[in-house]
Amino acid sequence: MRRTGTTRRGVFTATGAIALGAVLAGCGDGPGGGRDSGRSAAAAAAEQASAARAEKRIRTAAARTGLELLGNYEHVIRTHPATAAGLSPLRDAVRAHTKALVPAGGQAPALSRSRATDAGTAVRELAAAERRAADTHLAALMEAPPELARLLASIAAAGAAHAYLLTELAKETLS
């Protein structure tokens, strides 16, 4: 007696035929394959240009934040030379992060003026500046393309670690 109705083999054959038909139908819709290819290529080019402008804008803003932070480090080290040993490695890391964001031949750090009269207060202000910079980099993640987002996330994490280290250094400086 022969089985009637749907068999497992029949289902697999039908599914394979449908999948093959979908794959073959999709092959002709690439660039130059369909009648809307000119419009879709122009749209893709416009989208790429827009993404490049957005990335440049995000990089410029992040680099400006890094340069301001680097200027803060330079000012504190220059004003309070006793902090140079603790701040120099962190400043060098901020310089490297900023260099990763700024194109070649970038800007010089913007020096800021701290109102702190003692080294402990200056280091606490520097810790607050690191926190603000890390928050700024995190805020930019939502708009950044994937590669830049990874870089910004890494720099923000380093900034949070720097803020912690600076807070501890400020405690030691006050003692």
Results as ranks from 00 to 15, higher is better:
A82Y: 11
D29M: 11
C27A: 12
T65V: 07
G34A: 08
N72A: 14
C27S: 14
C27K: 15
P31E: 00
D29Q: 15
A52F: 03
H80D: 06
E47Q: 12
R78Y: 06
E68D: 13
Y73A: 02
R39G: 01
L87S: 08
S50R: 15
A54E: 06
T83E: 08
A49Y: 06
E55M: 02
D29G: 14
G32D: 01
S50H: 11
S88A: 15
P89F: 01
A41F: 06
Y73N: 09
G86H: 07
R57L: 10
G86C: 05
G34D: 05
A62L: 00
A62Y: 04
E55I: 02
L67P: 06
L67K: 13
P89A: 00
N72E: 15
T83I: 07
G66R: 10
R35D: 12
R91A: 10
N72M: 14
G38S: 10
E55H: 05
G30F: 00
R53C: 00
L87C: 09
N72I: 05
A93H: 15
Q48E: 12
T79Y: 05
R91H: 13
Y73M: 04
T65Y: 03
R57I: 02
A61S: 13
L90D: 08
S88N: 14
Q48L: 08
R39Y: 01
G33W: 00
A54L: 11
P31D: 04
R91N: 11
